[in-house]
Nucleic acid binder design. Sequence first.
DNA 1: GCGCTTCTTTGCGGCATATCAAACTCGCTG
DNA 2: CAGCGAGTTTGATATGCCGCAAAGAAGCGC
Lengths: 233, 233
Amino acid sequence: MHKLDDSLLAPLPPFSRLQSGQIREILDQATPRRFDAGATIFEANGEAGTFFLLLDGYVRVIRTTVDGDQVVVLHIPSGQLFGFAKAIGRTTYPATAVAAADCVALTWPMRLWDEFVRKYDGFSTVTYKTIGERMEEIQDRIVEMSTLHVEQRVANALLRLIRQTGRKTDEGITIDFPITRQDISEMSGTTLHTVSRLLSSWEKQGVVLSKRKKITVTDAHRLVVFSEAGVAN
Amino acid sequence: MHKLDDSLLAPLPPFSRLQSGQIREILDQATPRRFDAGATIFEANGEAGTFFLLLDGYVRVIRTTVDGDQVVVLHIPSGQLFGFAKAIGRTTYPATAVAAADCVALTWPMRLWDEFVRKYDGFSTVTYKTIGERMEEIQDRIVEMSTLHVEQRVANALLRLIRQTGRKTDEGITIDFPITRQDISEMSGTTLHTVSRLLSSWEKQGVVLSKRKKITVTDAHRLVVFSEAGVAN
DNA sequence: GCGCTTCTTTGCGGCATATCAAACTCGCTG
DNA sequence: CAGCGAGTTTGATATGCCGCAAAGAAGCGC
C-alpha cells in the first residue's frame, strides 16, 4: 500500500480548515479499505467500532424489516464521512451500509472520534452540517411518501440520484453506479414492476434512456414535471 | 414573572451533569414563554434566532407542501430541547413547530448555543443523542410508509403517541393533548376518513376509546397486533 | 457458444384506499 | 338554549397500484 497523499483529504469539507501537518496526523491513523459493489460495509445494530470516509464510489444506507423487505434510506456520495455512530450518541450503527459501487474508504477506530472532534477545528461543525442535511432529506422523503403518488415519488428518486450521484454524458445525466429497478422501488416505496412500467413509459417519451442496471436521464426538465404533476401523464 | 427555580432544569438530561451554579447561569439568560395550543412557535425556513427547552406541553413538528398538505414529522415531549438549528449547521429552522397543547418553554437567543456547547459539559453530547433518536424515529417512519398498510401505520402512530406522550388513566393510556383524526392522518400518510373508520372499528372491538379530540388506548397489546398483522382485521 | 442466473418487461385481476357526498354530534358563544 | 362551526361518522363509488404469472433479454462462467 503506497503512502496516502495529503492532497487526498485537503479539499474535503471535514478537513478543509486543517493545516497540512494535522492532515498528515489524521492520515497516519487511517486504514484504507476496498469494498466490492454489493459488499456490506456494516450492519444495522452492529457494534460501531469504526467510522469511515468514502473516497470513491457510492454507499447505500438501507434498513431491513422483520419480513425481509429492504428500504433505501439514503445514498452517500464520495467525500463524505459515514458510520459516525458516536456523533449521535450511539454505540451501534443505526442502519446497514452496502457498497452501491466499488468503493474505497478510509477507516478509523471509533475511539478516535472524540479526539478528532476535540483536536481539529471545524471537523465536528462540518459533520453536524452533514447530519442536518441528511435529516432534511429523510424528512423530505416522509413528506413525499405521505402526499405524492408513485409516479411522482419515482421521479423524485431519480432526480435525487442524478443530483447527488449524476455524471454528465453526451446523452444526458447518468447515474454513476449500477442500479436496478428493484433498488429504485426500494427508494420510493413501490414495486420493481411499477418502476419498470414507469421507466418504459418515460423511455418512450424520450425522458430517460435505460439499459440493464443503467439509467440515463435525457430530459431532467420533463422529469421534474412528472415529479410535480398530480395524476396527469 | 417569579424567579425560575434551579430544580426546574437539574433533572433534565441536557443539564443533569451541571453544577447548580451553572444551571443558575443558564436560567438567568433564559426567557420563559407561553404558547397556546395551536400557536405557531416557529416557521420552517424562518430565521433561527432562538432555541427552546420545552418545560410543559407538547410540540408538533410539521412540514407543509406547496399545495397545502401538512405532514407531521414528529412530536416533542416536555423536557427536550428543540429548534437548535445551529447544532446542525443551519441558520433557518428546518420545519415548522406548533404547540399541540398549551406549552411553556424557556428560550435563548441562538448566539448562546455555541457558548453553551463550549462551557457546559455534556450539553452537546445529550443534544446529539436526541438528534440521533429523532433521526432513527424518522427513518422508522420511512420504512413504515414504504412497507406497511394504512391500518398498521395508524396503529403505529397511535402506539408512538401513547409511548411518547401517553398518560395512564383508569381506562387505559390516553394521549395527553387534544388530537383530531386529521392530525393522526397527517402522521400516518392517510386521510381523516380512513382514520375515523379504523378508530370506529377498534372502538367496537374494545381496543380504544375515543371522544372528540381525545383518544384512549385501552388495550395496547391488541393494538400492537394490528400494527404487525398484515391484511387481517 | 451454451446454459444459467439475474434483471426486465408486460398483461390481467383484485383490492386497499382515496374521493366524493352527506348527515350527524359535540361544545361553544352570544 | 338556539345557532353555529369544527370535528366525526358512514356509505357509495372510483381507481391507482400491487400481486401474481410468465415470457423475454442481457450478461457471465464454463
